[in-house]
């Protein structure tokens, strides 16, 4: 009895020490994560500031741009925007009806919906370089060259599982009472889906689209051999298109310091766009949910 009590008395400080050490480890890990995030943003910002000029975003590469002469990366900014809007549109057109079918026509735990959700998980896990390879094989089969169209299709495939899964999650959250109320008023499944469920899930769907846009904007591996690259603005689906990640990548490989500087500036522009998207997501998810029936 006595010794046990003695032991406990001596053990108590040790337990306390372990407790505070653990707390310290957890705290310092969290601090480390914050430091890394700041370090990344600061590195990009500090390195890019000297090269960040207005001409970067309003001009296309001039003659001798890659030797350090005048010009900008308007081609890549516009190209990226063209690419992701087309890609997201394609992905959305495929994802939306599929998700509606999953949630209104099928029973809750039908083997079909399980299989589809499972395949979406599978697709989510596939690295974008493999999508790039698949896109290239599609191009060969359709006798397409590296072009805006081929890039759009490939990026659409990358975005599809992200978009579908995110929309599926929000639509699944819609309370079934609302659905049942619509059915009881004589609405068909389709009417219920479009007029009731989609309206209710609208903020979530916008968020999902924005997430997919962000993913498409940043993805380089899938457009590497499907979208090509050009110094001019792309005006047709069958022309190659420049993209921001590849603009950074190519300029960085240049031996000229002026061009490398511009890679940093392009990185700042890309980071800014991504930041903008994530801010809009936060804004939307707060603002739009006001109109939801709760």
């Amino acid at each position: 009895m006595d010794t046990a009590w003695e032991k406990a008395k001596f053990k108590r400080p040790k337990r306390k020490i372990i407790d505070s050490l653990f707390r310290l480890a957890a705290f310092s890990s969290a601090v480390l994560v914050v430091v890394i995030l700041t370090l990344i943003l600061m590195t990009i910002l500090i390195r890019s500031l000297p090269a960040l000029k207005l001409s970067m975003i309003i001009r296309t590469p001039g003659t001798g741009y890659y030797l350090g002469h005048e010009g900008g990366i308007l081609n890549a900014i516009v190209g990226s925007l063209e690419l992701i809007s087309g890609a997201t549109l394609i992905a959305f057109i495929i994802a939306l009806p599929g998700v509606i079918y999953l949630n209104t026509y099928l029973k809750k735990n039908s083997p079909f919906s399980e299989a589809v959700r499972f395949s979406l998980d599978v697709l989510w896990g596939i690295p974008s370089i493999v999508y790039g390879v698949f896109g290239f094989l599609l191009m060969l089969a359709w006798h397409l060259r590296a072009s805006l169209l081929a890039g759009m299709v490939t990026v659409a495939l990358v975005e599809l599982p992200i978009l579908s899964r995110a929309m599926d999650e929000t639509i699944r959250m819609v309370p079934s009472e609302i659905k049942e109320a619509a059915y009881s008023l004589g609405a068909s499944r389709w009417q219920t889906a479009i007029r009731v469920i989609l309206r209710q899930a609208f903020p979530g769907i916008i968020t999902a689209v924005l997430i997919a846009l962000g993913r498409g904007l940043g993805d380089a591996a899938s457009v590497l051999f499907t979208a090509g690259y050009t110094d001019r603005l792309t005006t047709s689906l069958f022309q190659p298109v420049a993209t921001l990640p590849l603009a950074i990548f190519f300029q960085l490989n240049s031996p000229y310091p002026e061009v490398q500087q511009r890679a940093y500036a392009s990185a700042a522009i890309l980071t800014f766009l991504i930041l903008l998207i994530s801010l809009v997501i936060r804004f939307f998810s707060r603002k739009l949910s006001r109109h939801k029936i709760k």
């Binding site: 994560v33 890394i36 950074i248 890309l270």
Partner: peptide
């Protein structure tokens, strides 16, 4: 404060991470 930071970290394109790697 941390949640948006993590979201941003998750959303940054891989080229940015690569650039950070080269620079630092």
């Amino acid at each position: 404060i941390l949640a948006p930071g993590l979201d941003l970290l998750a959303g940054l394109p891989s080229v940015i991470y690569g650039l950070w790697g080269i620079l630092l």
